[in-house]
């Protein structure tokens, strides 16, 4: 089977502390995978390893069969391996339109042009508008990001990622910090992601995970302890112990 995206034996230790241990994972085009696990399980570290923000101690990352382990973060993005951030990283005095325009221009290799206007091309403007409309951000397209709702900022994170036309998209808690009234918008956006895209989502909201994912991977203490269907995950003894126990408990208290 030729996987679009494959991770082999990925490990990372900081000093004597192993935060990722021998992780193997593969995704095909169109995959919808959720990566869950208790806090401190190494989920964000995994995303950082895969996208090249930090270097692994061992293991390989393959994209389309090409070993990208030696490449920096920027080159991985250019090959279609794109992420969003757990805490939004946006430019507070720019508008959503400017964010997406900048991203599209960058994808087309035009972002460092000194000559030429920022909103020069109608083609780019059209693409930007389509993307913003798809994500329901057209109404706030020209407001500064600092002034728009947090849920809309999360959607903008996704819009920026999509503007890069990724092959593999890693969503780091897309609904984190979003008030429950706004989660349906995020969920809707996730449902409408391009079908050919392989998506890995880290998420704590189990309802969202069960609706979104076709496959669930559970990470605990830097190790994969379960991989399978969402319907099986709750029944797994190991998972209950590591994660769902806590979760169920938390729910009961709430």
């Amino acid at each position: 089977m030729s996987d679009l995206f494959r991770v082999e034996g990925l490990s990372k230790s900081f000093g004597g502390l192993a935060v990722s241990r021998n992780i193997d994972l593969a995704m095909a085009a169109g995959d919808r995978l959720a990566l869950i696990g208790p806090n401190g399980a190494g989920k964000t570290t995994f995303v950082n390893l895969v996208t090249g923000q930090i270097r692994p101690s061992a293991g390989r990352v393959l994209l389309n069969g090409e070993d990208v382990t030696g490449l920096g973060a920027v080159r991985r993005v250019r090959r279609g391996l794109v992420r969003t951030f757990q805490v939004t990283r946006l430019f507070s005095d720019m508008t959503p339109e400017e964010h997406v325009t900048l991203t599209v221009l960058q994808r087309e290799g035009k972002a460092s042009r000194i000559l030429g206007r920022f909103r020069g091309s109608a083609e780019v403007a059209g693409e930007v508008e389509t993307l913003l409309r798809t994500l329901g951000l057209l109404d706030v397209a020209r407001r500064k990001v600092g002034e728009i709702a947090y849920g809309q900022q999360r959607l903008l994170e996704i819009a920026i990622a999509l503007a890069l036309k990724p092959k593999v998209l890693l969503l780091d808690e897309p609904a984190a910090g979003v008030p429950s009234s706004e989660t349906p918008r995020i969920e809707q956006a996730l449902e409408h992601l391009p079908s050919s895209l392989a998506v890995l989502m880290i998420e704590h909201d189990m309802d969202l995970v069960f609706r979104f994912a076709r496959r669930v991977v559970v990470l605990a203490a830097g190790e994969i302890i379960f991989e399978g269907l969402p319907s099986q995950v709750a029944a797994n003894e190991k998972v209950r112990e590591a994660y769902l126990g806590n979760y169920a408990h938390a729910r009961r208290v709430a």
Binding site: Q53, F85, R89, L90, F91, S92, D93, M94, E98, T101, L102, L105, Q106, K110, A111, S112, R113, I114, L115, G116, R117, F118
Partner: peptide, 16 residues
């Protein structure tokens, strides 16, 4: 220009 915009972005968050 796009370049100027890119610089503004770098100023605020190079990781982004």
């Amino acid at each position: 220009s796009p370049f100027g915009m890119l610089c503004r972005g770098i100023k605020e968050d190079p990781v982004r």
